[in-house]
Structures are given as structure tokens and as C-alpha cells.
């Protein structure tokens, strides 16, 4: 084993140290915040691409094939694949690695399976931090594959620069896609398994639907883009994968030029700061203003019809030093 602290070895490009630090951050072990603070100050340049979509869409195969295309172009590429944790036992079966074929040509290749550990937005609560670790390590691309339960997995938008929604001919008609809210998070639609019957239909459907919807509201963190491309691929036979990777590149380039890329990053950072603040504030307020018993009493009063949640919240807030001092 090489010498030095984990961070020193990490900085020297040691894969084992990288893997250890990911666990450290994922497990939120003592000192992880200090470590993240250090990493936030390091130069980074990775682009984060998220892939989401219903089960059976072939996301893993697509991620694997796309990552190898990127590697061959000389990039360092890593993949984070998230699978669900059991809500009952906390255990998880992470099977996405089955699809991963180690690539020896081209840049560095790294794969990490993560369990969602109680988060329901399609990723793990720690995904953002793990992506930061990988970015700091020097990867050019971080590909993030969501759990893929078929409903909208909004976390992906808050963690990625670009979101690809992967569908298959069997995913159903465009209306269902619309209903699921997938059009609001997609930067690109990928119709995978295009060798199957029905592929052409879903591509046409999606395209015409997207044209109709252009100009409508999208998810707040997604910059308005009326022209969401639809591309059909066949990851197993590697059909159209070069095109897909080129699409990624050109979308990123366009957005960097138009400034949309930075707008989205700003929103993500702002959101992260707000969430941390919210969390901090909650803890502080609850600790400072009242003991647990006091809150219980307030809840009792609300239930008894003698108080209401709004007044209770105002009262709790006023007990913090953040409340405006009356003069």
C-alpha cells in the first residue's frame, strides 16, 4: 500500500484512495464536510450527464456503450449507477455492474454502484457529493444512471448538466411519457432498442408532441429549450452510439456558449445552499426554541382546535435570533 493520507493518494491518482473517499463521503463519516470543503476549492471540469427512464429501457447497456465511446475518444469517464435500497432492511442488490465491461483502451474508466439509501428521487442523497469527488479526481465525464422506476426522478435534474431520458418501443405512447412528466426533465430523448417493432412510431410521436409543446413551461432548473432532440439507438448492437455521444458534445457546447450551462449550475448550487441552510435552520430552530415536549404540546393544541400551524411556526421562528427585533 502506498504511503500518505487518503487525500494525498487521491490527489496522486490512486484508484483505491478514490474508492475509499467515495465511501467516506457516502457514509458521511466524521470529517466528511471538511473534506468536501477542500474538494469544492479544487479545480474541476467534469460534465455530468444523467440517464433516466423506465425499467427495462436498457439504461445500463446504453451507459456502458456510451462510456466506452467516450473513452475511445480519449476521455476519462466514470459511471455512478444507483439501485434502490430496501425500505425494510436497508439492504440493496446492486446489479448494474453486470453490464459494465472494463475498457482497456483510451482514458481511465471507473464504475461505482450506489444504493439509494432511503432517498426516493431516483438517486442517493449522497450522489451529488460522490460526483464532486469524481470530478475532483479529474474525470472528464460523470455518467449518472438513476434507479429507473418509471416515474419522474427529479434528483437527476438537480445533479446533472444534461439529462437523457431513455425509452423503448414498449414504453407506451407519447401521452404516457407526457403524463409521467418526462418531457419536463429531458434535454434529449433516447429511444433505445430501436431494432424492435414500434420504434419508429414512438420517435415520430415524441417528435410531434415535443413540437406541439415547445414554448410551454419546463422544470424550473431546466433552461427553456424548445428543441429537445430525439435519437434512436440500439445499445446492444452499438447502433447510433457515436451520434448519441456527438449529440451530448454539441448540446454541452451550445449551452456553454449560450450561458445556459452556467445558469443551470448556478441554480444547482443555489439549491444546495438553500437546502443546507434549511436543514441547519430547522435543527437550530427546533433545538433553540423548544424542547421536544414543548412542540408536542403545540401539536396537541392544534389538534384540540386551540392553535394553528401558522401561528405555531411564527412563534417558533420569533424565538430565534433571526427574527426581527421589535423596538
Amino acid at each position: 500500500m502506498s504511503s500518505g493520507t487518503l487525500l494525498q493518494r487521491f490527489e496522486a491518482g490512486d484508484i483505491r484512495a478514490l474508492a475509499r473517499i467515495i465511501s467516506f463521503v457516502e457514509n458521511q463519516e466524521d470529517g466528511y464536510r471538511e473534506l468536501l470543503s477542500r474538494l469544492y476549492r479544487k479545480p474541476r471540469h467534469a460534465v455530468r450527464i444523467g440517464l433516466t427512464g423506465p425499467p427495462g429501457a436498457g439504461k445500463s447497456t446504453l451507459v456502458d456503450s456510451a462510456s466506452r465511446k467516450m473513452l475511445k475518444a480519449g476521455n476519462d469517464v466514470c459511471v455512478i449507477a444507483v439501485d434502490p435500497s430496501s425500505p425494510f432492511t436497508g439492504g440493496a442488490l446492486l446489479g448494474d455492474r453486470v453490464r459494465f465491461k472494463e475498457e482497456t483502451q483510451g482514458g481511465r474508466h471507473f464504475f461505482r454502484s450506489m444504493a439509494s439509501r432511503g432517498s426516493s428521487g431516483g438517486l442517493s442523497g449522497a450522489t451529488d457529493n460522490v460526483a464532486l469527488v469524481l470530478d475532483s479526481f479529474g474525470f472528464d465525464f460523470v455518467l449518472i444512471e438513476t434507479v429507473g422506476v418509471g416515474q419522474v426522478e427529479l434528483d437527476i435534474v438537480n445533479n446533472c448538466d444534461l439529462v437523457a431520458v431513455v425509452l423503448v418501443p414498449e414504453s407506451g405512447d407519447a401521452v404516457q411519457t407526457l403524463k409521467a412528466g418526462l418531457t419536463e426533465i429531458a434535454d434529449i430523448f433516447v429511444v433505445n432498442k430501436a431494432d424492435r417493432s414500434g420504434a419508429d412510431r414512438i420517435v415520430t410521436d415524441l417528435t410531434s408532441m415535443l413540437m406541439l409543446r415547445s414554448g410551454q413551461k419546463t422544470h424550473p432548473t431546466v433552461a427553456k429549450n424548445p428543441n429537445i432532440p430525439v435519437i434512436s439507438t440500439d445499445a446492444v448492437h452499438e447502433t447510433n452510439l457515436d451520434e448519441l455521444v456527438n449529440y451530448f458534445d454539441s448540446l454541452i457546447a451550445d449551452r456553454k456558449e449560450s450561458g445556459e450551462f452556467d445558469v443551470r449550475r448556478r441554480r444547482q448550487v443555489l439549491r444546495k445552499v438553500s437546502r443546507l441552510l434549511q436543514h441547519r435552520f430547522m435543527t437550530e430552530t427546533l433545538q433553540r426554541s423548544s424542547s421536544k415536549a414543548e412542540i408536542d404540546r403545540a401539536v396537541d393544541s392544534i389538534l384540540a382546535g386551540k392553535d394553528d400551524p401558522y401561528s405555531t411556526a411564527d412563534r417558533l421562528f420569533s424565538e430565534t435570533n433571526l427574527a426581527p427585533q421589535s423596538c
Binding site: S60, L93, V236
Partner: peptide, 10 residues
């Protein structure tokens, strides 16, 4: 023809 990988089923 390429080689086959199965859909992961556990």
C-alpha cells in the same frame, strides 16, 4: 455476430 449479455435478473 457479437457476444450475448443477459438482462440481469436476480
Amino acid at each position: 455476430w457479437g457476444e450475448y449479455t443477459e438482462p440481469p435478473v436476480i
